[in-house]
Design a protein around this nucleic acid. Structure first.
Length: 885
RNA sequence: GGGCGAAUAGCUCAGCUGGGAGAGCAUCGGCCUUACAAGCCGAGGGUCACAGGUUCGAGCCCUGUUUCGCCCACCA
């Protein structure tokens, strides 16, 4: 027999072919005019600068599984794809490119630079899209969006203007997080705090008009150049007499006051704190309370400015070294301690953040957050797993105003115009040439752009055509589900909820499924610097997209990080191969078979047929249930076990007798079941393994109602006759097979060697089943001679096992060691007796009988009965053995 | 400082509303049995971190302890 399929599965050859066919067939496209129920997901837009990493792979695999499943359950599915312009990240990439050519953006000018970025995007911005396609992502590519698109830009302006008009956007001059490398403000979220080893310098400040010194402790000695006070705790006796006196600030020789403030912790350091309102968030607050002047000592690159006197022109760390050295020379350095503290870093370039005074735009988020909190509280949006709701609430309750302006060039320029005549601000959807307040033409547009996350926050509706009232919005908003990692729960999810509720009046998604982070096999976060990054594309090349997807699904248990190991992926590649070979077997045995003739209700189905169909029906129901509950790992495990254990290890082996036999009717019947199980299994597996399943499905004989497996319906147990009694009978036969195999294994009887088996049955019904299905025992346990009956004549010397209500005896005269067999039986009896005793005790406990639910009672009674029966059989065996001594 | 999570077989992890502990890998033994050696058959291996409690019954619920991990936060 020759198969059409090659002997091993070759993913590379198959994947591209089917992806192209699906795409050309328009199978990814969503139709807003469809009458089907909708299912929609918007993709978390990857950065245009991005290359596919494990996080993307997991995220998009899960989305694709859901989306393919929902298409198969009769939904009109929209999976909206696109990319994010990623302001700072993208600007940095292009700046680097420029600097490698000896240029910089300032020399180029804003307009030319932005052109350059667009050009970069044109040339190399789309690679991640192609990488998603390699994964099998079935997005509606015709709708692909970019956050800087015309339409999305319009949405950004609309939102900005409306928030401004509602008084929810304002400007303010305050300390912000400033990146001296990127030259821009950052929101609090964009600052990452990392514990760093540093020092605590103790500086001696001379008190004016005395011989005394006041010692202050600081982690940033260079900021002393900007000190405008020293603070002590008002309750601190040590310093009470100094309050109101003055310090002569060393190096810059400026007099500053000694003030009292509760903020100072008496226990920490010396109990005196230098106050630098322009460069520290706490000090800024203290300064406000005491009306202290602000002395800004840095420029926007973190270089000391003219206020730093002799240190002007020095970079901040250079200045630090010099300040410390000079203080030491003057005897003003008391001591230096090692000290660890968390320093803020720019999440894009890792530079240490500088608290910096500047005027920025803010969104007043409290009113928006209130609505977003309500939406989750009342269940309009459900966060899965639920534990993340707490984290969400925790953050939302303590949310601070959102700094949305960035001093970079790549992004949505803020639609606000300043008037040089009346100093008023005009905010507008359209570009402005005249001041909206005084009519002057001397207007200049704000040069700042918006935080990238501002446009991302609109993604669920901006991509669907808002502010127009489009058919797409009507059909697909709110979306059904958002799949994302917890790392952007605040950055993105919370903000989408706020914006969606504000502008659509409806939550943007019914469910939010939060998945884990993908780590390396040691549990380390993957990062380029650690060199432990596994490239998803290499994985796809080596193991195939299906094996990779299946691995990710199998790992995606709720609430835990994923430690990805290539061994595991290799294991699922073997699974793909197993499926492939099962299909090869089926195809070899389905030559010329016409599935139109399948009749599963015929009465001559074999026990194996009845058993596998019952298994199939169950796995279909379970799979649907698991997918509906976002239990991806359970889905994968169910299908893995059914495919490998039930279908391949048992059913295929059991069916060989009929498939290879000469009985035409039996053969056709077995073919029908084989075809049915395989075809439905392919459908079940398709969302997880789209390529291999499509390839096999297309090779199946006969006609099917749709062109592609991708379009087929997802099986849910319908049309399968379930014969529970038959299935149970089969289990009995299988138990006997296992018992015989077990003995063979223990006794080292080679599988090729035929043996005799005597089955001493405790019931006539079981004996009948075993006799009628002798063929299975012959084929699977290599039994040549079989006698199965109640009270069958027993062989003299035999190895025994109990299978249900059957005592299996293998007369292996030469191999059986009587004493060892006796020991084995005694051990087994002890084990079973212990169980029996446990159940008997449990069931004689009145409280248990009174309180336990009936099904539990019934189950335990059954177990007790079975245990007693088994114990009886084993004791009988033991007696017989002992008689031989 | 606040919040969240984890601890189950040698390893990596499942275990959904409480009803006698599972998988994959690894280990050991036997097999080239005509779909598959990327395979087949079999075996061994666990005080479910620790201490209490609730319950007829706890890996699961409650309290405390220990050890890890993550997130948030303005103590110099």
């Amino acid at each position: 027999m020759e198969s059409k399929l090659p002997k091993g599965y070759e993913p590379q050859e198959v994947e591209g072919r089917w992806y192209a066919a699906w795409e050309q067939g328009g199978l990814f496209h969503a139709d807003e005019t469809s009458a089907r129920p909708h299912y929609s997901i918007v993709i978390p837009p990857p950065n245009v600068t991005g290359v596919l990493h494990m996080g993307h792979a997991l995220n998009n695999t899960l989305q694709d599984i859901l989306v393919r499943w929902k298409r198969m359950t009769g939904h009109e599915v929209l999976w909206m794809p696109g990319t994010d312009h990623a302001g700072i990240a993208t600007q940095n990439v292009v700046e680097k490119q420029l600097s490698s050519q000896g240029m910089d953006r300032h020399a180029l000018g804003r307009e030319k630079f932005v052109e350059r970025v667009w050009q970069w995007r044109q040339e190399s911005g789309g690679q991640i899209i192609n990488q998603l396609k390699r994964l099998g992502a079935s997005c509606d590519w015709e709708r692909e969006r970019f956050t800087m698109d015309e339409g999305l830009s319009q949405a950004v302006r609309e939102v900005f203007v409306r928030l401004f008009e509602d008084g929810l956007i304002y400007r303010d001059n305050r300390l912000i997080n400033w990146c001296p490398r990127c030259h821009t403000a950052l929101s609090d979220l964009e600052v990452e705090h990392e514990e760093k080893k540093g020092h605590l310098w103790h500086l001696r400040y001379p008190v004016v008009g005395t011989e005394r010194f006041l010692v202050v402790a600081t982690t940033r000695p260079e900021t002393m150049l900007g000190d405008t006070a020293v603070a002590v705790n008002p309750e601190d006796e040590r310093y009470r007499d100094l309050i109101g006196q003055r310090i002569l600030l060393p190096l810059v020789n400026r007099e500053i006051p000694i003030i009292a403030d509760d903020y100072v912790d008496r226990e920490f350091g010396s109990g005196a704190v230098k106050i630098t309102p322009a460069h520290d968030f706490n000090d800024f607050e203290v300064g406000k309370r005491h009306d202290l002047p602000l002395v800004n000592i840095f420029d926007e690159s973190g270089v000391v400015n003219e206020n730093g006197g002799p240190y002007a022109g020095q970079e901040r760390y250079e200045a630090r070294a010099n300040v410390v050295a000079d203080l030491e020379n003057q005897g003003l350095l008391e001591k230096v301690d090692d000290y660890g503290n968390a320093v803020g870093e720019c999440y894009r370039c890792r530079s240490v953040i500088e608290p910096y005074m500047s005027k920025q735009w803010y969104v007043k988020v409290k009113p928006l957050a209130e609505e977003a909190i309500k939406a989750v509280q009342d269940g309009r949006t459900r966060i899965v797993p639920e534990q993340w709701e707490k984290t969400y609430f925790e953050w939302m309750f303590n949310i601070q105003d959102w700094c949305i302006s960035r001093q970079i060039w790549w992004g949505h320029r803020i639609p606000a115009w300043f008037c040089d005549d009346c100093d008023q601000i005009t905010v507008s959807r359209e570009d402005v040439t005249l001041c909206g307040h005084c009519g002057s033409s001397r207007v200049r547009q704000e040069t700042d752009v918006l935080d990238t996350w501002f446009s991302s926050a609109l993604w669920p509706f901006s991509t669907m055509g808002w502010p127009e009232r489009t058919e797409t919005l009507a059909k697909f908003y709110p979306t059904s589900c958002l799949i994302t990692g917890f790392d952007i729960l605040f950055f993105w999810v919370a903000r989408m909820l706020m914006m969606g509720l504000k502008f659509m009046g409806e939550t943007p998604f019914r469910d939010v499924y939060i998945h884990a982070l993908v780590r390396d096999a040691q549990g380390q976060k993957m990062s380029k610097s650690k060199g432990n990054v596994i490239d998803p594309l290499h994985v796809i090349d080596e193991y195939g997209a299906d094996a990779f997807r299946f691995t990710l699904a199998a790992f995606a248990a709720m609430g835990r990080d994923i430690k990805l190991s290539t061994e595991r992926i290799a294991g699922y590649k073997a699974f793909a191969n197993k499926l492939w070979n099962a299909a090869r077997f089926a195809l070899m045995n389905l030559e010329g078979f016409d599935p139109a003739a399948i009749d599963l209700d015929r009465s001559d189905l074999s026990l194996a047929d009845r058993w596998i169909l019952a298994q199939l029906a169950e796995v279909e129901l379970e799979t649907g249930r698991a997918l509906g509950a976002y239990r991806f790992n359970e889905t994968a495990n169910l299908l893995y076990a059914f495919t490998w254990n039930s279908f391949c290890d048992w059913y295929i082996e059991l069916a060989k007798e009929d498939l290879y036999g000469t009985d035409e009717a039996a053969r056709e019947r077995a073919q029908g079941v084989l075809y049915t199980v395989l075809e439905r299994l392919l459908r079940l597996l398709h969302p997880l393994m789209p390529f291999i399943t499509e390839e096999i499905w297309q090779s199946l004989p006969g006609e099917r109602p749709v062109r592609f497996l991708m379009e087929a319906s997802y099986p849910a147990g319908g049309g399968i006759p379930v014969d529970t009694v038959g299935a149970v009978k089969m289990e009995q036969v299988m138990a006997v097979v296992r018992a015989i195999r077990n003995i063979r294994g223990e006794m080292n009887v080679p599988p090729g060697k035929g043996i005799s088996a005597v089955l001493d049955c405790k019931s006539e019904a079981t004996a009948l089943v075993l006799r009628e299905n002798e063929g299975y025992l012959r084929a699977l346990a290599r039994v040549d001679n079989l006698s199965a009956a109640v009270g069958v004549s027993r062989p003299e010397k035999a190895a025994t096992q109990v299978a249900g209500d059957v005592e299996v005896l293998l007369p292996l005269a030469g191999l059986v060691d009587i004493e060892e067999e006796e020991r084995r039986l005694e051990k087994e009896i002890a084990k079973v007796a212990k169980d029996v005793e446990m159940f008997a005790k449990k069931l004689s406990n009145e409280k248990f009988v009174a309180n336990a639910p009936p099904e539990v009672l019934e189950k335990d009674r059954g177990k007790l009965r079975a245990g007693e029966e088994k114990l009886g059989i084993l004791q009988g065996s033991l007696e017989k053995i002992r008689e031989l001594r």
